[in-house]
Design a binder for these strands. Structure first.
Lengths: 333, 333
DNA sequence: TTGTACGCGTTATCAG
DNA sequence: CTGATAACGCGTACAA
């Protein structure tokens, strides 16, 4: 089981009739080796099936090439597409992703970061939860880079990537208003993530400014089933809303399905809906959901390019815009 | 950028006033250390923020604890849920997942396996594509474990996990027959993965046995949009099918949406549909799709528990059943 | 139980 | 350009 017998540089050197250093240099970009030596080394390596030991190299160079992705509920469409974008970008930057699955508890995020430290990861990217301050400080002090995506809290030395959630919420309200809606609601989970709350507050604020009170309902995790429950709560109210902004697309799908199949409402005639994330399902013709797109490629790009740069300042924040994707769940457009 | 300053066992030893091996023993389960020494070491480690260097440990023990997950299109619902199940199981087994994203080319799978070798991964789990035989042989020879999920090809020393695709296809046909369908079609992508082809052939064979000729259509990647195209091709035929078995749920969703919204058909009255995978969306009320469930937890369990066992034989194959999940897209039930 | 000494596979350094 | 040698941080055989 633990009897692994990988071929080492020593064996390659022996076969090629050169020193170990020559082998090392052959596989180190920018090192000076004669064409002849390189040829012989490469030939021997090929024949033996030699591959540089990244564990040992990382030990020496003090740079493992590993970047930890810390995430919960990674089977959720938005998370999955973000992970895909990140792994791709990391690979182009000659890094490799280590994936750590957490549950919603902050404790498990701490545990994940310890794992990252143990593997001497060059960086950690946190997509879910929020680790304890002491642990992030340890990371930064140890020279590990830290990226926080859609987590709002401030952490010295970390890069924070966020969306303009409030602005988006405001635009959602305006869109509803233009569609002639007069009774507004916000459907949220009870998770309370900063970005989710920012959408809620932005929407409420926009309503207030125009003299409307927003009905707010929160329930469960940020998933389809919660959307079902939220629909049942919101659509049985005395003053039934004719416009619902959902904290994300999964909630919106659940809510839309329930509005149609259980309450026999027509979208967008009886009810306008806007979501958030622009997951693939939102473009499916059963939903055709107007929503805000998370620029996952941009997010991944920002994160990875920041990792490649030398550290500039303690306070590093990156705000990206969420673009409104017009589809058929809002009148007008 | 590469100035990392993690605390080492040496520093902990110094602070605790013991030797470096005492520190090592403290963090090695089953080693003999006195209670007093352990206490002092742990205290010092805590204060300094020490974490065992898994790179160095892996180098010594010849066991990195890393397991590579090689996958393409990881933002697809089925893949994402499988990855989630695998990472969870791996973590419970004190292993960690390294995620490598490939495109559909076999070349990129080879590249991924080289990466796995470089990091001295204890094992590689392949979810997409098929690597070259020479490379898999190198893995096995080097003592790296290999798991192939839903890839049919035979590889010495590797564990193959497969589903009873043919059986499932047969049951799908019987279900259609009982529902009173008389004109059958199979909607496939043109990817040609063994498991996809097995479903196609199993369905065709079942049809033949009952004296029916199956219409087969193939198009594009195994995704929603291909389902749209397949619907357009199948539903404009002179003899329109009243039963379509789709190679997977994504195709089924695209096909169902198109049948309803573009062709104004009612499911299951005008058209019965069965999918494969039981992705979350299939249970959404817009689809309510009858389908076969991929037992992702079982698959992950089989894979990870095999990794923990000593190698038993060269030929290791595991066949799992795909359970039929009855919903509303087939009459009767 | 504890400490010393060595080896794991690399790369960086330095003399040739 | 090349080869010898010293690290890197850890586990462990061995002696105390």
């Amino acid at each position: 089981m633990n009897r692994k017998i990988f071929v080492s540089a020593k064996e390659v050197a022996h076969r090629a009739g050169v020193s170990r250093s020559a082998v090392s240099r052959t596989f180190t970009p920018g090192a000076s080796v004669s064409e002849e030596t390189r040829r012989r080394v490469v030939e021997a390596a090929e024949a033996l099936g030699y591959h540089v030991n990244h564990l040992a190299r990382g030990l020496m160079r003090n740079e493992s090439g590993i970047v930890c992705l810390i995430v919960s509920e990674l089977d959720t469409p938005y998370r999955a597409s973000l992970i895909r974008a990140l792994t791709r970008q990391l690979q182009s930057a000659s890094k490799v992703a280590m994936l750590i699955n957490t549950d919603r508890s902050d404790n498990s995020v701490d545990q994940a970061l310890r794992q990252a430290i143990s593997y001497r990861a060059d960086a950690s990217i946190i997509l879910s939860g929020m680790p304890d301050k002491s642990i992030t400080e340890l990371c930064v002090k140890s020279g590990q880079r830290l990226v926080l995506i859609n987590r709002d809290e401030q952490r010295d030395g970390a890069l924070r990537i966020n969306l303009h959630d409030r602005e988006a919420a405001r635009r959602a309200f305006i869109a509803f208003l233009r569609a002639g809606c007069r009774s507004f609601a916000f459907a949220n989970s009870d998770v309370g993530t900063p970005s989710l709350m920012a959408r809620e507050e932005g929407f409420r604020a926009a309503g207030r400014e125009h003299g409307f009170e927003i009905t707010i309902e929160r329930y469960g995790p940020t998933r389809y089933q919660s959307g079902v429950v939220l629909a049942q709560r919101l659509l049985t109210r005395e003053a039934r809303p004719d416009a619902i902004f959902c904290a994300n697309d999964l909630l919106a799908c659940g809510l839309m399905d329930t509005a149609r199949h259980q309450f026999r409402l027509t979208v967008p005639d009886d009810l306008c809906i806007i979501g958030f994330d622009d997951i693939e399902q939102s473009s499916w013709s059963s939903y055709n959901l107007t929503t805000f797109s998370q620029p996952v490629d941009r997010i991944a790009e920002e994160a990875v390019s920041w990792l490649a740069q030398p550290i500039l300042s303690d306070e590093n924040s990156c705000k990206l815009e969420a673009q409104l994707v017009w589809r058929g769940s809002v009148r007008g457009g």
